[in-house]
């Protein structure tokens, strides 16, 4: 099966119906392994047990950017290739990305209070992630504000691509500015700075949350396809009703003119 085959929503529904149970099972299994490893991970010499918050904060922070990246590629699909499922993918991803970004901000605050002495600091990393969260909400509002999905798709695609400029700002904010947030310790030049006892559970949780996103995204895309089918069926119903009303009015008009003719 090629990417072109997936452009057909019916084929997409058939394929995802087969794949989703396996994806869900793999997600549950990996999450269970990740949580078990996170529970067994030793305390950090500086952070103590609060290092366990990192096992959910970091995957959610990664996913907050990854999901916007997926939406950006989907937006290119809408604007450049006009792929029929591109805007379905972008629309379905937005609420999931917003939820992951919210969790990144919340768990970061809950880690910051005992470690930094504050829940929030207006530094470049925290502020740029907050802007990302607000952009997710803005995008969801835009999708709801425009009735016609194809018109909403183009506007949302442009907004998504403009918003993608925030991704390198988030990533490199800790290098470009003097921030309270620590610099990258996993994906950096020279390899990870983390000990294996923290790195392995972190990577397992990152893969588990990524699988969770893929599973939820495919399921949400299926819902969006069904929603659009309902919309087109309702429009078909409305046009049939309008047509039959016109026909009824037309035949009534003809009968009336015959009656007038007969009377004359």
């Amino acid at each position: 099966m090629t990417l072109i085959d997936l452009a057909n929503p019916t084929r997409f529904l058939a394929l995802t119906a087969r794949v989703l149970p396996w994806l869900a099972a793999a997600t549950v299994l990996l999450l269970a392994i990740g949580l078990y490893q996170a529970a067994l991970a030793p305390d950090d010499y500086q952070q103590g047990a609060t290092v366990k918050i990192m096992f959910i904060h970091v995957p959610n922070a990664w996913l907050s950017m990854f999901v916007w990246g997926v939406m950006s590629i989907a937006s290119l699909g809408t604007l450049v290739w006009r792929h029929p499922l591109a805007d379905v993918a972008a629309k379905a991803a937005a609420p999931i990305g917003a939820a992951f970004t919210f969790l990144a901000l919340l768990t970061g605050s809950l880690w910051g209070r005992p470690m930094w002495g504050t829940y929030w600091e207006w530094d470049a990393r925290l502020t740029s992630v907050l802007i990302l969260f607000l952009m997710y909400l803005g995008l969801m509002a835009l999708w709801r504000a425009v009735d016609d999905p194809s018109r909403a798709a183009r506007a949302a695609a442009v907004l998504t691509l403009v918003g993608a400029l925030n991704l390198p700002i988030i990533k490199f904010s800790v290098d470009w500015w003097n921030t309270l947030h620590q610099p990258a310790s996993v994906m950096r030049m020279g390899g990870s700075a983390l000990d294996k006892s923290f790195l392995i559970p972190l990577l397992v949780m990152a893969v588990a949350f990524t699988l969770l996103f893929v599973t939820l995204h495919l399921a949400a895309m299926r819902n969006e396809i069904l929603r659009r089918r309902i919309r087109s069926l309702q429009m078909m119903q409305a046009s049939r009703v309008a047509f039959s009303n016109e026909m009824g009015a037309g035949s009534r008009g003809q009968n009336a003119s015959k009656e007038i003719g007969a009377a004359g």
Binding site: A49, T50, K52, I53, I56, H57, T107, P114
Partner: peptide, 12 residues
């Protein structure tokens, strides 16, 4: 979970 257990439990 040490003295910051409430922060860890709330996060999860």
């Amino acid at each position: 979970l040490g003295p910051y257990a409430s922060f860890i439990v709330t996060s999860y």
